[in-house]
Design a protein around this nucleic acid. Structure first.
Lengths: 239, 239
DNA sequence: GTGGTCAACTGGTCAGACCAGTTAACCAGT
DNA sequence: ACTGGTTAACTGGTCTGACCAGTTGACCAC
């Protein structure tokens, strides 16, 4: 199928180039970034475009800008938020970093279990809607990509039910990853996607406010993807 | 003590103003943002300053910009990452939103326990350093602010030890909150800060690779702050 | 040594022009 | 009635070139 063409503006390119330099370690924390005028000259673009890119890098906590002083690279590992996870997961060449991938799956497990618990605690009324979503999954058992979408919606409901904005924001960053590498992801969590019974079990537990059960079923479900990723990473590590 | 003066640039002001409009709901998801030229005129600033602010909002996933089309407000609850937690926690007037605060503490609990476990699993060598940090805490039992800093360093070591970038990024966002409201925070987690024994117990568990113990002690330690915040929030809710 | 001055950086702001993509209304031609 | 081309009026994207405003360090006078 045809897809919309991604346009890249000049400031986007500047942003990406500097971001990759920082992620790759070519520009180290504390190092000074060339001045805006110099950067503009080096990249053969307007200073305004450079400034826009620098503002974005600053917003992403990758650099520190101070009027009058030189702009410096920050240690993004100590300052950035989860919104950078997806970009961090992918090396500039396009393949995934195994260690980061494992980390993401662990994060997913850590919050996923508590999301289920809080949802059961605070929003038992969502049980019915959750079960419907699970039923939809049962009706689409063959289309892995569709399943992935439905599973995402299932969990999105749960996150809403947990009534926790912090979880919501972390969830957003994880979903961001899912959508950027949906093909790989659907494979990795295929086991989870196909287990409609587990989804229903969670829905029932939520509906009846059985917080421990909701957490238990969620943990049991989520851990599979984590283990799959770990196995794949190990295999890559052996090479 | 004297503090450095915070300077605010024009584009910062534009950014904050629009961000608050979005956070407060005054600008709803899907709504169109006035065009750059109009915004510049309304705010009586240069268009370049407006563009820089819009680029930052775009990076923060609060708006969507498309060449030729109108710029639109996104549903930040469905797109933003954890870097916005601190800003989201504080209402424009300056006080804290109880519901968000509870959410942050739950997130802290969810990842904190697994951080301890992974640290014990992957970096038992850190045990000694952790114990030293705990000892430092014992030496500064009276200075709550100092304790808070040391506790932060203790946990930062643990996050390093967990060898999980995803946890690191979430941790960064939480620390960001700690530092923006350090006074309040030190009070809320005072119980945790003063319990040096618990910190040492975790350090020992890490050193000997006792993953379950590390997790258990961490959970026991962290849950106190969570409960404190919940109590305070309940008290506010009663009013 | 203290404090003033100045030049040479840095980033911040600005006005005004033009390029480029999107949309909708209009207008052929089929 | 539909298709496709044209045009005008938006939108954001890029650019030039200027000036304002902090920071630093070298230099100088007291």
């Amino acid at each position: 199928m045809l897809k919309p063409i991604k346009k890249k503006s000049v400031s986007d390119s500047v942003f990406e180039q500097l971001r990759d330099e920082i992620f790759s370690g070519a520009m180290e924390p504390g190092e000074v970034v060339p001045s805006e005028r110099v950067l503009a000259e080096m990249l053969e673009v307007n200073r305004g475009a450079v400034r826009e890119a620098l503002k974005r890098l600053e917003q992403a906590r990758l650099i520190s800008i101070q009027h009058g002083e030189a702009t410096r690279v920050l240690d993004f590992q100590k300052t950035a938020g989860t919104e950078l996870l997806a970009e961090l997961l992918m090396s500039p060449s396009g393949d995934l970093k195994p260690k980061v991938a494992i980390g993401v799956m662990e994060l997913r497990s850590a919050i996923g279990t508590d999301i289920a618990r809080r949802c059961a605690e605070r929003s038992p009324g969502l049980g019915e809607e959750l079960r419907q979503k699970a039923q939809e999954m049962a009706d689409n058992k063959k289309d892995l990509e569709k399943l992935r979408e439905l599973d995402m919606e299932f969990w999105s409901l749960m996150v809403d039910g947990s009534q926790n904005v912090a979880y919501r924001l972390v969830f957003n960053s994880i979903i961001d990853i899912y959508e950027k590498i949906s093909g790989v992801m659907a494979q990795v969590v295929a086991d989870e996607l196909r287990d409609v019974e587990a989804h229903i079990a969670i829905a029932d537990a939520v509906e009846e406010g059985r917080v421990d059960d909701a957490e238990f079923y969620a943990r049991d479900l989520i851990k599979r993807g984590e283990e799959t990723v770990r196995k794949i990473a190990d295999r890559i590590g052996e090479k």
